[in-house]
Every structure is written in structure tokens, then in C-alpha cells.
Amino acid sequence: MNTAGGAGESGVGADEMLAMLEQMTFIRRFEEEVQASFQRGEVPGTTHLCIGHEAIPVGLAAALGPDDVIATTYRGHGHVLARGADPAAVAAELTGRAMGLNGGRGGSMNLTDFAHGIIGSFGIIGGSMAAATGAGLSFRGTGRVAVATFGDGCANHGYFFECLNFAAVFRLPVLFICEHNLYGEYTPWEQVTAGADIAARARVFGIDATLVDGMDVRAVHRHAAAAVARLRTGEGPVFLECRTYRFVGHSRSDPATYRPPGELEEWQRRDPLIVARDALHDAGVPESVTGEAEGTARERVRQAFATALASPFPEPAVTR
């Protein structure tokens, strides 16, 4: 993959970087379509979009092997797609269809696809940390890695402290990834979270913990790849705090009026798609090439939702 034209200092080649841009663009357009479908009444219930977070699932997925597993959260559509789940099956799950990843039984917050190493998306804060910690128990000595993703809102939860301690004392091959987007639901993180950063909490357990630019897919990928390499040798666990920002509200009903004026715009200047595109342009990849990601993404999203919406709902008799 790493061919001509390195994209910056990260060691990620232009081809790989282009593929990651395509994936991030795809996730962005997918999430926008989820929102639009929701507004049209096609996605029932609620949704939690990962718009703004895309560098994290994409940078992480590129560092994992097919035998590694991930446990993510209700804001996990991006991770599920980045791991290679069938986009039509994801769209079908969000719209409650029989061909959905979970057969329509789980919905947006519980996307699960064992065939692609997604042992679950967890609708209750902290569940992902426990699931990955337990997977780490199964993976001792195998070279396989379990990943937990969770938000900054998880950092004050019992699961957070119990699982970090548990994984640390048994040196489990678990990569803990905090997607720190500055808000726990509607509340600014610093109002409810003591201390300067969340990584410091992991360090007190003797866990190697690093603050990562979660808007730069190169940085996420570099740190995730280094962590995975360590974990495969039996050294673990590792903690990455990826600073990011969600460009939309917590869930479908949240207009996000609690943000200070200008904050969103400031973060949007570091939109992970823009950061990746700029890096590619700096590396000599022409705009005509990076621009192709857009059309490809839109077409894949269109097909996924068309397939999902044309497919039948589950039969109640079967799900009883």
C-alpha cells in the first residue's frame, strides 16, 4: 500500500491515506443520510451520530487485523462501517429491517457484527469497556487484541475505573480509546470531570496513556498501530485519549445550544476530512484525485439505503 508520495511525517503512504479519506468521507455521508432518513421518518427511535469523529474509527480500523475485536458505543456507526460491515446491513438495522446486522432486534445503539470483529455496540455507558476487557481475557497469549471505544462521559463511571484496573492487573491485550469530544451528552466535560485530562486517570493504574489529536487520521493511526503492536507481544493494556468534537448534537433531539459561540466553527476548521485532504494535497496528490472520494461515498451511501429501504421488515412471529 505504501507507495509514492508520503503524506506527511506519519509514515502513512499516499495510497493508504487516500483510502482513509475515502472511508472518512463515506462515514460522514452515511451519517448525514442517517440524519436525513431520520427526519423523513425512515429511521425510528433515536440516533447518535459520529460526525466530526471519523478520523478515530478509520485510523483505528486501519491498525487492526481481522482477528481483533472491537466493542463500541451507541455512537459507533463509524466503527462498524470502518471494520467492514455491509453498509446496507447497517442501514437496514437502523431502519428496523430483517436484513439488518441484528435482524432489526438491536437498532442504532446495538450494532453487532461478529463476522467483522464487532462484538457489540453498547447503549449504556461503560459496557464497551467491560466487553473488551473480557475479550482481553480470552485473548491472553494469542496475539489478538480487543479494543474498547467510549466517550469522555464514561470517565466518571464505575466501569471506567474497574475495567482499567482489571485489565492492568492482568495485563490484558486491550486498547482503550477514549473519544473525548468535550461533552458528556449535553454537559461540558470540565464541569463534571476533575483533573486536566482523562489519560492521567489511566496512568495511575500504570497504563501507558497518550493524548492524541483525534481530528488527524494520521495521528490516530500511528498511535493505534503502535499500541496494537505492543499489545500483540503481551504488553498491555494501552490507553489513547483522542481529542475530537462532534459537529452535531448528542442525539436526534439535541440542537446543541449549550455550545459557546464560535466553538463549533473553530473545530470545523480542523474537520478530519479537511485535515486529510490538505495532507494529501501537500504530498502532491491532485485535487482531481481527492475529489473522487466524494462521489464514491455518495453513491455507496445511496445504494446502501436504497437496498435497506427496499427490504422487508422482520416478521413478528419470528422475533417472538
Binding site: 462484538i119 459496557g127 467491560a130 473480557g134 491472553r140 466501569y159 474497574e162 475495567c163
Partner: peptide, 28 residues
Amino acid sequence: STRVFDTPISELAITGAAFGAAVTGSRP
């Protein structure tokens, strides 16, 4: 001690880890 081990006093982690282990090939 790989198969039979003492844990922290940490019921949430014990049970949560049992779940994660159970869905990845172990029978805790």
C-alpha cells in the same frame, strides 16, 4: 492461575469481563 484466579473486589468488572470473555470463546 491462568484458568483459576483471584480478582479485585470489583463486581462490575468481574461480571462485565465474564460477558466479554463469554462472547469471545471462553466459558467463564
